[in-house]
Amino acid sequence: MPLPILPDGGARVLAYVGATAAPDDATFAAEKYLEAHALVVQLLLAADGTDLFDKLPEHVQTDVLPQQVLEVASKLWLRRNAPNGQMQYDMGGTTVLAPLDPLVTVRPLLEPFLPGGFA
């Protein structure tokens, strides 16, 4: 059984990033949720293309993975307001780079459950 797509994924992304439910935002959030879901599913594929979802512990399947899809979606959401990968904050006015890899926070969390690279 693959990682399920939640029907309210777009609404969950909006709540996660603290955005409004404007029609444009809702559509964008739904798109980012589907993109994030695809990225996490791709991360869960073994080298031979088999899906590793069923081999993960149950608590990872039910609790961790849905949260990680939201985390990846939030990174993709950030890119909307970060042209050229740069975000500015009002407080100090310093330029902060948005993560170029949306899986940057997900990989370390899921790494213990994924097969190793070289033998």
Results as ranks from 00 to 15, higher is better:
9 G>L: 01
10 G>A: 08
11 A>L: 11
11 A>D: 02
12 R>M: 04
12 R>L: 08
13 V>A: 04
14 L>C: 06
15 A>S: 10
15 A>E: 00
15 A>P: 00
16 Y>T: 05
16 Y>P: 00
18 G>R: 00
18 G>H: 02
18 G>C: 01
19 A>T: 03
19 A>E: 05
20 T>A: 13
20 T>K: 09
20 T>Q: 07
22 A>P: 00
22 A>K: 15
25 D>E: 07
26 A>K: 08
26 A>T: 12
27 T>H: 10
28 F>V: 02
28 F>A: 03
29 A>Q: 04
29 A>S: 08
31 E>M: 10
32 K>I: 01
32 K>H: 09
32 K>V: 01
33 Y>H: 11
34 L>S: 05
34 L>A: 09
37 H>F: 10
37 H>N: 04
37 H>Y: 06
40 V>L: 04
40 V>A: 09
40 V>H: 03
41 V>C: 08
41 V>A: 11
44 L>Q: 10
48 D>Y: 01
48 D>R: 02
51 D>N: 15
51 D>E: 13
52 L>Q: 15
52 L>V: 05
53 F>V: 15
53 F>T: 12
54 D>Q: 14
57 P>V: 15
58 E>V: 15
60 V>S: 13
60 V>M: 09
61 Q>M: 14
61 Q>Y: 07
61 Q>D: 05
61 Q>T: 12
62 T>G: 13
64 V>P: 00
64 V>T: 13
65 L>V: 10
67 Q>D: 05
68 Q>A: 10
68 Q>S: 12
70 L>Y: 02
70 L>A: 08
71 E>V: 15
73 A>V: 13
73 A>Q: 08
73 A>T: 11
73 A>G: 03
73 A>W: 12
74 S>C: 14
74 S>L: 11
76 L>R: 11
78 L>R: 12
79 R>P: 01
81 N>Y: 09
84 N>V: 07
84 N>A: 15
86 Q>H: 04
87 M>C: 01
90 D>Y: 12
91 M>G: 02
92 G>P: 00
92 G>S: 13
93 G>W: 03
93 G>I: 06
94 T>P: 01
94 T>N: 13
94 T>G: 06
94 T>F: 13
94 T>A: 14
96 V>W: 03
97 L>F: 06
99 P>G: 04
99 P>Y: 08
100 L>N: 12
101 D>R: 14
102 P>M: 10
103 L>V: 08
